[in-house]
Simulated scan of single mutants.
Amino acid sequence: MRLTSVDELFETDASREDKQREKVLDIPLSEISDFPNHPFKVKADEAMLEMAESVKQYGILVPALVRSKADGGYEMVAGHRRKKASELAGNETMPCIVRELSDDEAIVAMVDSNLQRESILPSEKALAYKMKLDAMKRQAGRPSKENSTQVGQDLKGKYSVEILGEQVGESRNQIQRYIRLTELIPPILEMVDEKQIAFNPAVEISYLTEKEQTELLETMKQEENTPSLSQAQRLKKLSQEGRLSADVIYTILTEEKPNQKEKFNIQKERIDRFFPKNFSDKQKEDLIIQLLESWYKKRQREQER
């Protein structure tokens, strides 16, 4: 049994509250490690260099959030970009709030703080949504199952994925589609980030096996081509039926897409003066074709003489 000390007996309510209140501490950068599997990329790009310049002039205006590590030092929860900017600015310390958080509380805080950013890559959203959803399911006291939504109900009967959707302003279905991207092999996921593959085809591709995705990646590189949504859906269906091979991938990927067919465009301003004002674009097109057919037949007759 622990006895109350003399200092504690005469301690005021104000001093007790002051002890419990979180304080901002200047912590050496060398003592702060990154969050494990941090899904948000910290790049030394132009925005980061501008941030570093701001840190040089004004310092860190908003303290980072860290938690203590069992083996000493601290783990960054929110503030990875501020830490990088501090390093580039030549600082040795940065202001931090130290908060005691469980693993799942730390995951939720880390994801929530980063989702406030203006620009977030699809891969960052995908990994962050998955990490937070798994943490929410564990906090709800239910087992976390891969891509399952039938776990983690709260007292109101809502599933974790529905609560997450409400928090981030996404539908339940869209949350699940983002999480599907975590099934992509890293090179294809990077192509999604770089907008070389659209989001919807990428979701369909995520259902392919790792071997099939690798074969698809090789074909995309060789042909300098990526699948459309309909092609990706066919790849997924054939994969699920066990009929997808490297040859089939090549055949589908090298098909001519409707939007790849050559088009001949004429500026409307050049031809509008030849048509009545009430003519629709379809009527103009039909008349042009008729005139071209008439001209073509006339030329044929002249050549036959």
Rank of each mutant, 00 (worst) to 15 (best):
Thr4Lys: 06
Leu9Lys: 09
Glu11Asn: 10
Ala14Ser: 13
Arg16Lys: 12
Arg16Ile: 13
Glu17Val: 05
Lys23Arg: 06
Asp26Trp: 06
Asp26Cys: 00
Leu29Ser: 03
Phe35Asp: 04
Pro36Gln: 14
His38Phe: 15
Pro39Ala: 13
Pro39Phe: 09
Asp45Ile: 01
Asp45Ala: 00
Glu46Leu: 11
Ala47Lys: 06
Glu53Leu: 08
Ser54Trp: 04
Leu61Asn: 09
Val62Ser: 14
Arg67Gly: 00
Arg67His: 04
Met76Phe: 01
Ala85Cys: 09
Ala89Trp: 02
Glu100Trp: 01
Glu105Ser: 05
Asp112Ser: 06
Leu115His: 06
Gln116His: 14
Arg117Ile: 10
Glu118Ala: 08
Glu118Leu: 01
Leu121Trp: 12
Lys132His: 03
Lys145Pro: 02
Thr149Arg: 13
Thr149Asp: 09
Asp154Lys: 05
Glu170Arg: 09
Ser171Asp: 14
Gln176His: 13
Arg180Ile: 02
Leu181Arg: 00
Val192Pro: 07
Asp193Arg: 00
Phe199Gln: 07
Glu204Met: 09
Ser206Trp: 06
Tyr207Pro: 00
Leu208Asn: 15
Lys211Tyr: 08
Gln213Asp: 15
Leu216Phe: 14
Ser228Trp: 04
Gln231Met: 12
Ala232Trp: 02
Lys236Arg: 15
Gln240Thr: 02
Glu241Met: 09
Arg243Trp: 13
Leu244Trp: 08
Asp247Leu: 02
Val248Lys: 14
Leu253Gln: 10
Leu253Glu: 15
Glu255His: 11
Glu255Thr: 08
Glu256Ile: 07
Asn259Phe: 01
Asn259Leu: 05
Arg273Pro: 02
Phe275Ala: 11
Pro276Arg: 11
Lys277Met: 02
Phe279Glu: 06
Asp281Lys: 07
Gln283Asp: 08
Lys284Met: 05
Glu285Gln: 12
Leu287Phe: 12
Ile288Pro: 02
Gln290Asn: 06
Arg299Ile: 03
Arg301Met: 06
Glu302Gly: 14
Glu302Ser: 12
